[in-house]
């Protein structure tokens, strides 16, 4: 295997909360001990419910939030302690596409200015004409005609705005593209367009994709590997094929069973098997295995020690001490 593009070692992001004169300082453990290697050209899905830390993890990798512990290695170099100024040149190679397409575009800038902004920062030697050419090329690549450069974001639909956001992220041909719920805010008929566009771009430019999403169906379509998070901790990590066909962790199994399928023969039964309970407060996570309060298979031992990711087969890892007893759950062929 080639050198990983990105490595995380026990990465933690804790936010201090409730700091006050008379209150004890507590930590919200948004991301709590993630180990991960991402190979160049890979599409890794990061899934979980809201509050599982998936967006925070993505932002910590991009150094948009500061990590509290552990290491981030970019092409083998630890970057987690670097100053903002020192990180800046790296941003050329790591870009992000946001969830809300309109909110991620400055309303006072034209589309041309928006897409050109990364070039202004990282490719200062480009002439105005060259810059414009790069912008128009990239816009064409995401399916927008050249005459959009003088228009403003509010004139476009959600799907078109997301194309503009993707063009901005891709104009520097980054090595890593982080997509933070890029299709969640879009209409159903537009989601497929954007998924296809990301697939096309990945095929043509070969960049690595970190695809953060709660939409497990889209992740299955787009990603090579998937990391499942719950309360900031890794639950399961596996190739897409294995994760969806033989999910090992009870949480993954519950999550997959909860996704609705547009088939009236299957869906009513699927509703019956819904995972019970709710996400515990991230300020007071359960002892031991954080998922045990919602787990149908939990035993007394689960409260004692937090299970670590352990290998199953072929790179499939699961953070459950009882995975052998539970067995794979083949609800999704």
């Amino acid at each position: 295997m080639t050198e990983p593009l990105l490595q995380l070692r026990d990465l933690r992001v804790w936010f201090p909360v409730g700091e006050g004169l008379f209150r004890a300082k507590r930590n919200l453990r948004a991301v709590d001990g993630i180990d991960l290697q991402v190979a160049p050209g890979e599409a890794l899905g990061i899934v979980g419910e809201s509050g599982c830390g998936k967006s925070t993890l993505a932002r910590a990798i991009l150094r948009l939030v500061r990590s509290s512990g552990g290491q981030i290695l970019w092409l083998g170099r630890p970057i987690e302690g670097w100053s903002t100024a020192r990180v800046r040149p790296l941003r050329r190679d790591m870009q992000i596409v946001f969830q809300d397409p309109l909110a991620s575009l400055d309303p006072r800038m034209t589309v041309g200015e928006i897409v050109a902004e990364p070039l202004r920062v990282h490719a200062r030697d480009l002439s105005r004409a060259e810059r414009r050419e790069r912008v128009v090329d990239m816009l064409a690549r995401v399916g927008l005609p050249a005459d959009v450069v003088n228009r403003y974001p509010h004139e476009f639909s959600g799907g078109q705005c997301q194309r503009i956001g993707i063009a901005r992220a891709m104009v520097l041909r980054p090595k890593l593209l982080v997509c933070d719920e890029p299709v969640s805010a879009l209409d159903v008929s537009i989601q497929a367009q954007i998924v296809n566009l990301l697939q096309d771009l990945k095929r043509d430019f070969g960049m690595t994709i970190l695809f953060v999403s709660h939409n497990l169906a889209v992740v299955r379509r787009l990603c090579d590997r998937v990391l499942v998070l719950y309360l900031g901790k890794p639950m399961e990590l596996a190739s897409t094929d294995l994760l969806y066909s033989q999910p090992r962790h009870p949480y993954t199994q519950g999550l997959l069973a909860a996704v609705p399928v547009p088939d009236p023969d299957l869906q009513p039964q699927r509703l019956g098997g819904a995972l019970g309970g709710e996400l515990p407060s991230p300020l007071a996570p359960p002892s031991g295995c954080v998922f045990r309060t919602r787990c149908a298979h939990a035993v007394a031992a689960c409260a004692a020690a937090a299970p670590q990711l352990q290998p199953v087969e072929g790179g499939h890892e699961v953070a459950c001490d009882r995975w052998r007893d539970i067995g794979p759950y083949g609800a999704t062929p």
Binding site: R92, F98, P107, R168
Partner: peptide, 19 residues
């Protein structure tokens, strides 16, 4: 988010303030 987008693009503080 567009401010975060600018940060992610590597725009510095003066640039974010002015632009």
């Amino acid at each position: 988010e567009f401010i975060e987008a600018a940060l992610a693009s590597g725009v510095g503080t003066p640039g974010i303030l002015a632009r």
